[in-house]
Amino acid sequence: MSEQTALAQKIAMLTAPDSIDQTGARLISVGRDPEPLTAILREVDDTVLERSLAFVCGDTTVTIVAAGRRLRGIASVTPAKDADIIGQVISRDDPDGVQAAFDLLQELCGTADRLTVRSLPPEPFGKGGERGISATGLTELWGVTMEVIPKPPMEKFLSTNATAFLSVLHIRDGKIVSTAGNFKALQTIWKSQVDTFRKAHAKMVRGEEKAQLVCFEGAFDDGSSAAMALYENEVVLVAYQAKQYGEIQSSWQRIFT
């Protein structure tokens, strides 16, 4: 990654609103955007003073020690995991240990749908002279990039809320590009109501149509709700449980405003 690219990405991170989950931890990867190991290395690269970084995915907590933009090692895993690399400082002189650290992180976090982090005070770990390996160095050793290629806004909205949606119908330029779940009812809404709504809405705004999320609580017989997302040449219809409304609305605001 070039210095200019790295600087631009860090500025973007600083100016973007923080995503905090319900536990108060910072949300750094949702729907594998970015990839969990990319998110972990970016956190290491942002850590100058020694800290314990506790990453949580599902029921698993992986605590690593980072300092000087370097990963020193994996301090602990909860629930307990039998792995020799835990508690050891990684070093280029021990390629097997470096690979073992990668394998463990990939096993525990690599396919996580949601990954959060807490920055905690450091705890004693290894010896003072054992510095670990820089995040940049690990991108080469592990074949993991720290660069994040932004997804188009609507795709980001869908991946961010993938676990909240019961069904999805995604249309671009009038053609179905993706579906999920039992989308037949959504298809009926699209064919019978969406075009009429967009025409009426265009008359009301009298100008460029902005991104819009319209929610219909209890729209279906089973009690689930529906939402229609409009952005440029894209229409997304989703079904979801009403309790997910706050999270869906919050993510929409982060992505489109």
Rank of each mutant, 00 (worst) to 15 (best):
R32I: 12
P122A: 09
R70M: 15
D113W: 11
L53D: 00
T38N: 13
K81F: 11
L53Y: 00
A67R: 07
T61S: 01
P36M: 03
A66G: 05
S119N: 15
P95F: 08
P122C: 12
P124I: 01
L49A: 10
C109A: 07
L41T: 03
S52K: 06
V98R: 01
R32F: 11
E130L: 14
L27V: 10
A80W: 13
K81A: 11
L49W: 07
D82I: 15
R72E: 06
Q99N: 12
R70P: 05
G128T: 15
R69Q: 07
G132T: 11
R118V: 01
G68F: 06
R70G: 09
L53I: 01
G87W: 11
G73S: 10
P121Q: 09
V98Y: 07
G126V: 05
D84S: 11
E35W: 06
R69P: 12
Q88F: 15
L105E: 01
I64A: 05
R92M: 14
V77N: 07
A54M: 10
V77D: 13
R42P: 05
E107H: 13
S29M: 14
G73H: 03
L108Q: 09
E35T: 04
G126L: 12
P36E: 00
P124L: 05
F102E: 13
L27F: 11
F125V: 02
R131C: 08
L71K: 05
